[in-house]
Design a protein around this nucleic acid. Structure first.
Lengths: 203, 203
DNA sequence: GTCTATAGGCAGATAGAC
DNA sequence: GTCTATCTGCCTATAGAC
């Protein structure tokens, strides 16, 4: 396993695309995060990069494959950020703060979480993209769950019911706070909500 | 003010459309709530109703006007539901439960909140629709804020910081919980999250 | 009010030259 | 790898008959 035959030109298993493929992903990612998967086109990406649509189809055969590549890269980077938090923070409370900061950084760029946006578009997505979106949320929940259990053992985090349920609450609350903050163009609104949410756990 | 000249045929100020216009809104509403504003077309609505696209344009000149009418009706009905809660419930805790139930009912129909969905599509919406979406969230926040203050005075609801901030947290958390629950096709997940969220206020 | 017919544009996608 | 050229289909929207 781990064949070196790329499913998409220039993209080997587990490695990030580089060169043109990466620049396509950069532009497409921003467009999806701000306009949704049905709110952007190959023409949008091509014109912004100064290339033709045909060139895009060389790197990503269709919108479905481009969408998959977008989620793959986003989820991998997000996972690496979570590993970074684990490496840099000992205190579970601090880990949750940093987790919320990840969301805040996205919002400051006037973007929605990629997978939060795709969750809205879910009914119109090809199967492979759907599965990747759910996987992203599963991975987030698993990481949060671990942090919450850690905090409970240490006595620094307090919550009723299950760590799994609490993790789901956190993910949903942060995604929703982003979703609603964007029409207001108000990053402070998000950050205040995030603080309020996490405060209930540290009390 | 209060002219009887309809902006859209068959729709007088402050009154719900009836007949064909209402049936168009019914179908379009479901499509937007499940697929997003850029994920449905006049052709989708027309074929489902067994009429032509041209007929739709008679009732709603363009997609923008249809979108406005959708939000207007949704917001009015939502506001009426909130008035109903005020009329039927005395206990602020019970009001919050009923508020969360409004969201659960939408989700059980496999839909996202109309304005939550449009918040995702926000960057692609015409100005009038954008303003109507923000108004919806403002009205929700105002109602929640009143309930929260009421509960605080009675000593039945407890929260730190402001009622406004707490209201924003509730709206965001419920919208986000819906957003994430839909890919899982899991209504229970939403309801458990909602209970967990409101429990922190009653404790 | 609803229809047929059609306009004009943009969508995603492909063939084949360079 | 990127291009030109092109295809097919769907999109929003309009004109005008019934």
């Amino acid at each position: 396993m781990g064949s070196f035959r790329p499913r998409i030109r220039g993209v080997r298993d587990g490695l990030e695309p580089t060169g043109t493929a990466a620049r396509i992903l950069d532009v497409a990612e921003r467009l999806v995060q701000s306009r949704g998967f049905n709110g952007f086109s190959y023409a949008d990406v091509a014109s912004e990069l100064g290339v033709t649509k045909a060139s895009l189809h060389y790197h990503f055969p269709g919108k479905a494959e481009l969408g998959e590549a977008l989620i793959d890269r986003y989820a991998r980077r997000f996972g690496e950020a979570l590993e970074g938090i684990d490496a840099e923070c000992a205190d579970p409370r601090q880990k949750l703060d940093r987790y919320a900061q990840l969301y805040a950084l996205v919002l400051k760029d006037q973007r929605m979480c990629l997978c939060g946006m795709l969750a809205a578009d879910y009914a119109t997505l090809p199967t492979a993209m759907r599965q990747a979106v759910v996987r992203f949320f599963d991975e987030n929940q698993a990481w949060l769950q671990k942090v919450l259990e850690e905090g409970q053992e240490q006595g620094t985090l307090h919550y009723e019911s299950s760590a799994a349920g609490e993790a789901q609450l956190i993910i949903g609350a942060l995604e929703g706070a982003m979703l609603v903050a964007r029409p207001y163009g108000d990053t402070d609104r998000f950050e205040a909500t995030a603080r309020r949410l996490l405060a209930t756990l540290s009390a």
